[in-house]
Design a protein around this nucleic acid. Structure first.
Lengths: 210, 210
DNA sequence: CTGAAAAGGTTTCTGAGTGTAACTGTTATC
DNA sequence: GATAACAGTTACACTCAGAAACCTTTTCAG
């Protein structure tokens, strides 16, 4: 990975859909052919066999405009096994923004998001990592959307075919029943409007095929 | 933003450069024309006048493959003014991964990255937020790259024309002089290989124009 | 309740963008 | 010094994507 690759990544950070030809025009003095840009990008995005690619081009969502609330969690787990189990279980949760093992007064850090502060409370008190077996203690901090980055990957259309990764059922939850929590976006009973749901089905006009 | 938009974002999260035609084929049953997909994407990515766009398509870098180390920082500042000043000053730092005001035992949270643990120590002890005026106390946690997300936006080719956002000069720093810190990626004296530098200039063969 | 405007979609057309193949010039290696 | 690997080029055929014109449904003001 040389400076040209780094410049390429830098350009694609600004606009991930910029055309190869246009990138070629601005990546080096005098320009570079779209074929050369394509070859470089392919190597970065596809990687070698049995290796994770170095780069991924992906859509991010503006958390502030979505009105998302954020939750920082520091946790102490009993063992590596517990940490591993939690990592596996929660990394596909559509509310997870970041999860990382650390060293210090705690050994696991997680950043999660929710539609509103009520749902955030539910995540915290009822259906989340903090209440997992093997978690000794935890500390949390609330916030509005972060100042940086403005855009984060959030799966707004999670698969509803499978059970929630946290293995909990909103339908049986008192918080959900009392209307204090919009529920899990992976469940069919989800009531919010941020993630895909019945509430956000298409309504306005549009010509159907034919 | 309806469920089709959410599906669109979801598809672009997997591959931000997928062609509009291909997206059209998979976004709804029976398919959708590339023109319709384009109109939707335009609205999401460009937004209305005077409004931040909802979506940004961007390149992310695999932190683990880059061997990045991570630093979680919780800080207590004296006032909103101090917090604001720090946010403005540090949000463009190429080592910043996330920075967010919070409520709780601390009122500011930051996640930063470094090439190695020595440089991480420098960030912590010498040239970073923790040592800013108006910061009462802080707590930090070290870690390797996060389990999720695998890809994060990191500006590998930061502008070297301007002064470092933190307004410090590596050339005068003892840590830098003694070889314990690779220095700031925005400076011309940067010695690391992760961000763009003289050490990562192109060397191998290549046909030049003509 | 009615008609215009807005929203969302379609088809068609055309220039711009992209993948493949063949080839050229450097650099590293044995 | 020959050779392989690497990084880039041009040429060409095919695909993609923006523009324009038009269709259908929904919303909303009067």
């Amino acid at each position: 990975m040389d400076n040209v690759d780094k410049k390429l990544i830098s350009i694609l950070m600004e606009d991930g859909r910029k055309s190869l030809s246009e990138i070629g025009r601005s990546i080096v003095k005098g320009g570079m052919s779209h074929v050369a840009v394509s070859k470089r990008l392919d190597k970065l995005v596809k990687g070698k066999d049995n290796e994770k690619p170095l780069v991924k081009i992906s859509a991010g969502v503006n958390l502030e405009r979505m009105g998302m609330k954020i939750l920082f969690m520091a946790l102490e787990t009993e063992s590596f096994e517990v940490t591993d189990k939690i990592l596996k279980k929660y990394k596909d949760c559509p509310r997870m923004l970041m999860i990382a093992p650390v060293t210090g007064r705690y050994n696991l850090f997680a950043v999660m998001i929710a539609e509103d502060t009520f749902s955030l409370e539910s995540i915290l008190g009822t259906c989340s990592i903090r209440t997992e077996e093997g978690v000794r203690r935890s500390e949390t901090w609330f916030g509005n959307s972060p100042a940086y980055p403005e855009y984060m990957p959030v799966n707004l259309s999670p698969d509803k075919k499978h059970k929630a990764t946290c293995a909990r059922t909103c339908a049986d939850c008192r918080r959900y029943a009392s209307g204090k929590c919009v529920g899990c976006p992976t469940s069919t009973v989800y009531k919010g409007t941020i993630y895909a749901s019945r509430a956000t089905e298409q309504k306005r006009g549009g010509q159907r095929k034919g």
